[in-house]
């Protein structure tokens, strides 16, 4: 029993160190390679942004509108009868932009781009593609990891900001169309309630989640050995670790922000 716990702790801390050092290794690789293969890396980054941010835009847009609708309709319905109508725009703006949208986008991207990254890198490992690149003198951290980290982080950040406004506008419009929003609630009041600090907070979450999703899945994909059966295991490990990390990070950042506000 003690041995099992010890092994788990050892594996966990080894993985944590490996994951934490990956962005550094990728940045170091970029410095050491001095622009070698820059065109190929830029192209891979653009592909990653396309697959992470552009391709799933319709489904993410729909999710954002539904999230917006739920928050606006529920806030309005619960707060207005209790004399809290003036606070509805602030609650809606804070809840959607700061709290709900960033984590919802992160959870969708974990299941979509995160698993894709772990699977692709795992397959490349088993198929000797990574060894072949390595043998050809290609820096793996720079060539394979950096585009994924940069691409996913830019995508998560852009999606968080852009879809926040889609959620506010789409949720409000749909609520109005379905008669779920009272006449007193105006869209410009909600937009006015989106402060600079709220956007900064959502930006920080977007960047943090993007880094977590890309780095954790790159690590688990590259950790695959020589067997195809290791790929689904890497996938599961990456997904579970991302869920845990993103939810913990989300809660921590929110609590820290609230504590600062209270102080």
């Amino acid at each position: 029993m003690l041995g099992a716990v010890g092994r788990w702790v050892w594996t966990w801390q080894r993985d944590a160190v490996g994951i934490a050092s990956l962005p550094y290794a990728a940045a170091k690789g970029a410095v050491l390679e001095r622009g070698r293969g820059a065109g190929l890396v830029a192209r891979a980054t653009a592909s990653q942004i396309y697959f992470t941010a552009v391709e799933p835009l319709p489904i993410l847009g729909a999710i954002a509108v539904l999230c917006g609708l739920s928050v606006i309709a529920i806030s309005d319905a619960l707060m207005r009868p209790n004399g809290l109508a003036p606070h509805v725009p602030v609650v809606v703006a804070q809840a959607i932009v700061r709290e709900i949208l960033p984590i919802v986008i992160a959870l969708v991207l974990i299941g979509r781009s995160g698993t894709a990254i772990a699977t692709e890198l795992g397959y490349m490992r088993v198929n000797d593609e990574i060894d072949a690149l390595d043998a050809a003198g290609v820096n793996i951290d720079y060539f394979l990891v950096l585009p994924r980290i940069v691409g996913v982080t830019i995508s998560t950040l852009s999606l968080t900001i852009a879809l926040s406004f889609v959620a506010l506008f789409g949720g409000f419009s749909l609520g109005e169309a379905l008669n779920l929003v009272s006449v007193g609630l105006r869209f410009d009041a909600i937009i006015d309630a989106v402060s600079l600090s709220t956007i900064a907070f959502a930006t920080a979450k977007g960047v943090a989640f993007g880094l977590v999703i890309s780095t954790v899945n790159c690590f688990h994909g590259l950790a695959v050995g020589r067997s195809f059966t290791e790929i689904p295991r890497a996938n599961v490990r990456g997904t579970v670790a991302c869920y845990l990390a993103c939810l913990t990070l989300n809660a921590t950042l929110s609590v820290v922000a609230l504590a600062e506000r209270a102080a």
Binding site: V126, D128, A136, G137
Partner: peptide
Amino acid sequence: ATREHRTQVGFVFEAGGLWA
């Protein structure tokens, strides 16, 4: 030096190794 070494060595893998 490692990179220089690798650019001087060509490696043909058994079956895999191509960027799929």
